[in-house]
Nucleic acid binder design. Structure first.
Lengths: 345, 345
DNA sequence: GTGAAAGCGCTAACAA
DNA sequence: TTGTTAGCGCTTTCAC
C-alpha cells in the first residue's frame, strides 16, 4: 500500500502535524526531526495525497486548458508551452476539446469543476452564459488567444487586428492590389479581417466583399473557399489566410489549379506553425510569441488562483511578420529573394 | 459557495447518506424522495466533489497520457482520440510530455501519482525501473504504440514490424533496389527497421548498413540524415521514413538538392498524419487505425482500473499502406498514376 | 427506506 | 519545538 502521513509519523515517532509541517516548510521544526522525517519519507517513497490536501482547501494544483480542437497545430504548440510552464510551477494540465459543441462546453466545465483550480479557455464558447456564471462564482478563468469585450475577465492574446493589418499591408507594399482573404467564423478571425480591411482602406484600395471568404476550420474547407477565389476571372494575386491552416488550404487550391506560387499567387498565413516549413514554397506567416503567451497565461491564472482580488487584466502581445518564399511581388520577384530580406522580420 | 452534499440533504430534509445513495443509484430509496432530491440537486446546481469521493477509494476518474513530445502530430491525433473516448466514459485526461528526459519521467509519474487512476504510456521510458516499480505496486498501466517485451503489462500497439515490412516490400515491388531508411532511436523504430531488413532479405537484396541512418526526432534532424544518403554517388532511389516526420525531412533534403520526387526519389512515411496531405507530392505512408487504437487503450485501461485481476494482454493492430504521389517506379511512373491505384490500399 | 456515525489523508488552529 | 484535535465532502456499514 501507498504510505500515508500516518505511516511516516509513526515511523518517525512524531505526530502527523509535524510531518505535515515538514512537508510544507511551515512552523518551527528542529533540524534533527526535519531531516529524520525527510529521510523516512524518502525511504518509504511517500507521496502526499493531492486529494486530501485539496479537501483542506489547498486546491488541486491542476489547471484545465480548453481548446476547440487539436487538429490545428497551433493548439498543440500552446499546449506544449502551457504544460511546460505549468509543470514548472507544480501544476498539472488537463486538456479538453469542445469541438465547438455547446454541450461539450458544458459537460467539460462541470466534469472538471471539482478537479481543477482554474481554466485557461482558448475556445470560443457559444454559450456565453456558462462563462458568465463561472466568472460570477469567482472561478479563476483566463481567456487565451481570444478576448471577450463584454466580459470582465483576464486574458492573454495576440493582437489579431494588428496582425491582420500588417500582413495585408505587407502584401500591398509588395504591389498587390487584389488581395483575397480566407477566414473562419471565430472572434480572432473577425479581428484579423478587420485589420485586413483597414490596411486596404489606408492604402486607398476599395474592399471587395466578395474577396472575403469565410469557411470551415479544416484545410479542405479552406481549400474550397480559396478555390472560389481562384476560379474567378479577376482572381486575386494574393491571399491572406486567417491562420496557417487556411493558408495551406489556399496553397493546395492553387496547386490543384496549376497556379504557381509565389509568381502567380502570393499566400500568407497566421500563427507561424510548423506547417509553414514543410509546404513548398515555404509559407510566410504572422508570427506570435507562443512561448511568451503560454508562460504569461499560466502565471496570470495562477496568480488569480492565489489571489482572487488581484486586478483583472488584458494582456495583448504583438505579432511579427515571418517572411518566406510564398510571398513576392505580383508576377514574381527576384529582387527580394536576392536582397535576402531577413526571415524573422 | 458551491453547495455540498449537506446543503442538499438539509434542503431535502433527509440525511447525507440518502443523498449519496441517490447520486450513486444505490440502496433502496422511495421514488418520492429520489425525485425530490434530484430536483433540489438541479436547482442548486450541485456537483459532487470528485476529491471527496476519491478519498473514499472511488478513484479520481482521471487518466494520465504520457508522450515524448507533441511536436509530432501523431501524438495530437492520439490525444484527440483518447480524450474523446475517455470523456465518453466519464474520465478526464491529463497529458504530460517527457521530452525523453529521465528526470521528467520521474517527476510526472510522482506528481500525477495521487491525481490519476492509471497511466497510458506512449513514451519510451529510459528509466525502466520506474515502470517496473509502478507495475509491481499494482498501478494500472497500459503501454501505447510501443511494447516492452520484458514487462508484464497491457499494451496496445500497431504492428511496427509488419508496417516496416510492407512499406519496404512495396518499394521493392515498384522496382527499387537501393532503399534508404531514416529512423529514430526508439523501440518502434527498431521494429520498423527490422521489418525493412526482412523485406529486403526476402527479396534477395543485401542490406547495406550505411543506408540506414538513425537521427533525431525533428524534421531538421531527419533532413540532415537523409542529406547524407542523398549526397552519395550511389544514392538510394527510395527512402523509407520511420514516421512522417522523418519522411518529410527526407523530402525537404531532396528538394534542397533539386532531386525530383517521385521520379528521382520515392519517399514513404509511417503514421499517415495530416503532414502527408500538405507536402508536394503528397506523401505515401503506412496508415494505422488511430481511432481504434485510442479507443482500445482507454477501454483496456479502464477495465484494468476496475478489475486489477483481469488477465494482461497485448493488442497489436495491423497497419495498411496509404499510397499517394510520393512513390513511383524508379525513374518515374505514369503507369501506376493512370491505373488509379486506390489510395487506401 | 432512511439515518447515525466512522473515517479516507491531510491541514491548521490551538495547546502544551 | 511538537502534539491534539477538529474538520474538508463524501461513502458505507449497520441500526432503526
Amino acid at each position: 500500500m501507498k504510505p500515508t502521513i500516518y505511516d511516516i509519523a509513526r515511523a518517525a515517532g512524531v505526530s502527523t502535524a509535524t510531518v505535515s509541517k515538514v512537508m510544507n516548510n511551515k512552523g518551527k521544526i528542529s533540524e534533527k526531526t526535519r531531516s529524520k522525517i525527510k529521510r523516512i519519507m524518502q525511504e518509504q517513497r511517500y507521496e502526499p495525497s493531492v486529494m486530501a490536501s485539496a479537501m483542506k482547501g489547498k486546491g488541486t494544483r491542476t489547471i484545465a486548458f480548453i481548446i476547440p480542437d487539436i487538429d490545428n497545430p497551433i493548439y498543440a504548440e500552446y499546449l506544449k508551452r502551457i504544460e511546460a510552464c505549468g509543470h514548472e510551477l507544480g501544476y498539472t494540465i488537463v486538456m479538453a476539446t469542445t469541438e465547438r459543441d455547446p454541450e461539450k462546453e458544458e459537460r467539460h466545465l462541470s466534469l472538471l469543476r471539482s478537479k481543477v483550480d482554474g481554466y485557461i479557455i482558448a475556445a470560443r464558447f457559444s454559450n456565453l452564459g456558462l462563462l458568465k456564471a463561472l466568472i460570477e462564482d469567482g472561478v479563476p478563468i483566463a481567456l487565451f488567444s481570444h478576448e471577450r469585450d463584454e466580459l470582465s475577465v483576464d486574458s492573454v492574446t495576440v493582437d489579431d487586428y494588428l496582425g491582420g493589418y500588417r500582413a495585408t499591408e505587407y502584401l500591398i507594399e509588395l504591389g498587390h492590389a487584389r488581395i483575397g482573404m480566407v477566414g473562419e467564423d471565430t472572434i480572432s478571425s473577425q479581428e484579423r479581417i478587420r485589420g485586413y480591411r483597414q490596411a486596404l482602406r489606408d492604402s486607398g484600395i476599395k474592399t471587395e466583399e466578395s474577396l472575403i471568404r469565410v469557411g470551415g476550420h479544416t484545410i479542405d474547407g479552406a481549400a474550397e473557399q480559396a478555390g472560389h477565389l481562384l476560379e474567378r476571372a479577376d482572381r486575386p494575386t494574393a491571399i491572406f489566410g486567417y491562420n496557417d491552416i487556411c493558408a495551406v488550404g489556399a496553397m493546395l487550391a492553387a496547386r490543384a489549379r496549376g497556379i504557381r506560387m509565389p509568381d502567380e499567387l502570393s499566400v500568407i498565413g497566421f500563427d507561424d506553425t510548423m506547417l509553414c516549413h514543410i509546404v513548398e514554397p515555404k509559407l510566410s506567416s504572422v508570427s506570435m510569441p507562443t512561448q511568451e503567451m503560454g508562460d504569461q497565461v499560466v502565471n496570470l491564472l495562477i496568480r488569480r488562483i492565489e489571489d482572487a482580488d488581484m486586478p483583472k487584466q488584458r494582456l495583448r502581445l504583438l505579432p511579427e511578420l515571418a517572411l518566406r518564399g510564398s510571398t513576392s511581388r505580383p508576377g514574381g520577384d527576384e529582387a527580394i529573394e536576392r536582397s535576402g530580406r531577413p526571415a524573422g522580420l
